[in-house]
């Protein structure tokens, strides 16, 4: 597709810090290459703002190749914008029309408070992980090599699919209930499917779900929006697995 240049208008949420009230500001931005990524477009805007002596728009980004999960943004009513299976850094300006007004908002959820402009605090995910998103390993030197335990290919594939979750929070952002179940279920599944993870499976699901509830995420109503918006295509199958794991851990005790 040949490169074109479009003129757009940006409607961006500006908020000085977590305590200040925020509001939308509009910025016209001419001559945006359709080959540029969404974040490159924001870089262009910020260069213009800095040249004028204005405060640049704060937004999260890191690897810019779709693997770190750092970029966020709610663009025109969708997490990571209108494209499917991509993070915001992989979203390109060719998805937008000349003359279009693009609304950019931070991810909205009670557990994800705005830090500044479009940057939100996603550390609740870290606290959920700290409650069981790992395998406890005895590092005495006698640890068995992981490859020595046979794992069926189908299970390994499913575990790997779940493990591709980058923890970006798009599932929470897009869910009408601000539920974190797709994230938590992926993190429960990636270990529950493997023999190394089965040992602590019960504690893991109970503790991670409990922490998710403490953080104040909403409840899952199976709308499936998370699966559609997830840049890594994490399946709802994982939520069903988490529900099963939870049910098992609740009604069966040793």
């Amino acid at each position: 597709m040949a490169e074109k240049f479009i003129n757009i208008k940006l409607k961006i949420w500006r908020q000085k810090d977590s305590k200040s009230a925020g509001k939308f500001e509009e910025y016209p931005l001419p001559n945006v290459s359709t080959d540029s990524s969404f974040l490159e477009m924001l870089d262009l805007l910020n260069e213009n703002l800095v040249e004028k002596g204005d405060e640049p728009v704060a937004f999260d980004h890191d690897c810019r190749e779709g693997i770190c999960g750092m970029c966020s943004l709610f663009i025109n009513g969708e997490a990571h914008g209108p494209d499917r299976g991509v993070t915001t850094c992989q979203l390109h300006m060719r998805m937008f029309k000349d003359g279009e007004t693009i609304t950019i908002e931070p991810f909205r959820a009670n557990p994800f408070p705005v830090i500044k402009d479009l940057v939100v605090d996603r550390t609740p995910f870290d606290r959920i992980m700290a409650k069981g998103g790992f395998v406890s390993v005895n590092t005495s030197g006698n640890t068995q090599d992981a490859n020595a335990i046979p794992v069926p290919k189908a299970d390994a594939d499913k575990a790997f699919d779940a493990a591709t979750c980058i923890g970006c929070g798009a599932c929470v952002a897009t869910c009408k209930n601000a539920s974190a179940m797709l994230f938590v279920s992926a993190k429960v599944s990636q270990l529950a499917l493997l023999p190394q993870g089965r040992v602590e499976a019960k504690e893991r699901v109970m503790n991670m779900v409990h922490q998710m509830d403490i953080e104040g995420f909403g409840n899952c109503t199976n709308t499936g929006a998370c699966e559609v918006e997830c840049p890594k295509g994490i399946s709802l199958e994982n939520i069903a697995r988490m529900n099963r794991e939870y049910l098992k851990a609740t009604i069966v005790s040793e």
């Binding site: 939308f24 609304t103 009408k176």
Partner: peptide, 9 residues
């Protein structure tokens, strides 16, 4: 401000 619920559910 803008929420496109019909896009994914």
């Amino acid at each position: 401000e803008q929420y496109n619920g019909a896009a994914n559910a």
